[in-house]
Amino acid sequence: MDFIDYYKLLNLDKGASESDIKKAYRKLARKYHPDLNPNNKEAQHKFQQINEAHEVLSDPEKRKKYDQYGKDWQHADAYEEAKKQQQSSGNYAGGGFNQNAGFGGNQGDYSYSGNFDEDTFSDFFGDMFGSRARSQGAGRGGHFKGQDFNAELQLRLSDVYTSHKQTITVNGKNIRLTIPAGVENGQTIKIKGHGGPGVQGGPKGDLYITFNILNDTSFKREKENLYQNVELDLYTALLGGEITTKTFDGSVKLNVKPETQPGNKVRLKGKGFPKYKKKGEFGDLIITYNIKMPTKLSNREKELIKELQKLRS
């Protein structure tokens, strides 16, 4: 991750006092706090950065190192150590400290926790605070319920026509789920007790799964209803007739009324999508007729159409 200018992030100048830092942090935290910005990943990311900036700038020791070493401040101790060693052996040439050396700073008092993604912390912050920063409820209070996990599951529309079982992996653990038929795109379900472990004997957190459903069919769906455009030839539209059309799980024969107009709709009851958690209940399939006009007319056809035209005028 790129270097983050903590002062810039908190809208502060380098001479900011402790109270300025606190004030700036509070102001931004109230704006970007994840509890105040549900489902807003951008705000969550910003809040993590603000927290990180506050964590460093509010600690005089860390701030001093940050001011002195900038982006390399997390290696400050290693740098100082190397410098001392090189100076004592008389061959210090400046620069070139060990980039891989670990940073031995103290753990700060992290003031907020939530569901943070590991990769959104800048590298040194992740190294420094490790998993503590990512555990729910770290901070001033005791803890009880485990961390809630959020996951997104991509499914095809054809997959959710029937209830099925699926195994997903969350935080390295396999969870076998029953996905009820009829779940909707964007719908979130809660799987109780599949989040992080509880603290001090508390209950486990919950797992929230949001479904992202990709339509792999020619049908369009709104809730439990399906929509389909069906093409009719001109003569069937004018004179009526019987056609066979696809449904989601097969096909049906349809009687087309004479003089069917473009855009006319028919509703096939119970031929739509399963209703969520209502076993055996289905929505409707709504068919819209498109009339396909004939092309490449022969002379004879043109004559007959002209005759028809005369009859109508």
């Binding site: 509070r26 935290a29 109230r30 706090h33 509890d35 105040l36 003031s111 907020y112 901070g139 001033r140 209070g141």
Partner: peptide
Amino acid sequence: RRLHYELDI
């Protein structure tokens, strides 16, 4: 609790 204790709301 977080909003009250952490953000002074």
